[in-house]
Design a protein around this nucleic acid. Structure first.
Lengths: 123, 123
DNA sequence: TGCATTGTTGCTTAGAAAAGCAAATAATAT
DNA sequence: ATATTATTTGCTTTTCTAAGCAACAATGCA
């Protein structure tokens, strides 16, 4: 199976849209579409970003054998993705305002810890 | 661990020289040296050739011990995802406050409904 | 019916990978 | 030490990824 098909399968199994993955990963929507449809071969760096956004390990993209991805639904998909969608609809200015408010609620230290925990749990 | 180091370890464990791997794989010696020393990031295609020459699977290059997350964490400070995940760690009261602010910014009824669904799921 | 979301495609530009060849520097054996 | 092999580095050219646009169908929803 091509890597693009595998990525798509994993993404759909987590009920995420392409847009969501691109927002989280920072990969452009055009690129991501071409990657999934096999029109371009992503670099390792790009695959790392995508794997992180999907909440899977990089090696999950290369398992030739049985795909066990359907089982592993990451913990921050559905409700969290709804929030991503909402905030993502905001103009950049307002987005920054929301960010500053969030940052005001918690300090920078707690922020990094929280992120690390989430990421650890996800992968 | 970097992928280059991993390739080198596998190659040395099989007691093969760089030359042998490059002859079998068809990857140039200059390229292969730069790959092992981490001076360049190989493409998937090149990794496939190398894996074949080494007699290992592609996923053997990515076995999860050096998560890219450690590197990424510090670069996500201003990203959307970081805040979104952070919001999830807030107490309910503060979470609602943040969401109400988002709601105020968004202002659309449709999105407001979506937000309430999110809140419902969260609480 | 419109309207927004989702996904695809085309284009330009910048940057990095890969080939191919050559030269320089380890490392090892004779 | 010299020769031989192994690995690294430099350079040019070609190819391709990736970003950042924009435009385009297709689908679903109001």
């Amino acid at each position: 199976m091509e890597i693009g098909e595998r990525i798509r399968k994993i993404r759909e199994s987590k009920k995420m849209s392409q847009k969501e993955v691109t927002v989280i990963s920072g990969v452009g929507t055009a690129m991501f579409s071409r990657i999934e449809s096999g029109k371009t071969e992503p670099s390792i760096t790009t695959l790392e970003k995508i794997a992180l956004a999907l909440g899977v390990g990089l090696s999950d993209f290369f398992h030739e054998d049985a795909p066990a991805q359907d089982v592993e639904v990451n913990t921050y998909d559905s409700s969290l993705m709804e929030r991503v969608k909402l905030i993502d609809t905001l103009p950049d200015e307002e987005k920054k305002t929301v960010f500053s408010i969030v940052d005001a609620f918690v300090g920078k230290r707690k922020l990094k810890n929280a992120l690390q925990n989430v990421l650890h749990d996800a992968v």
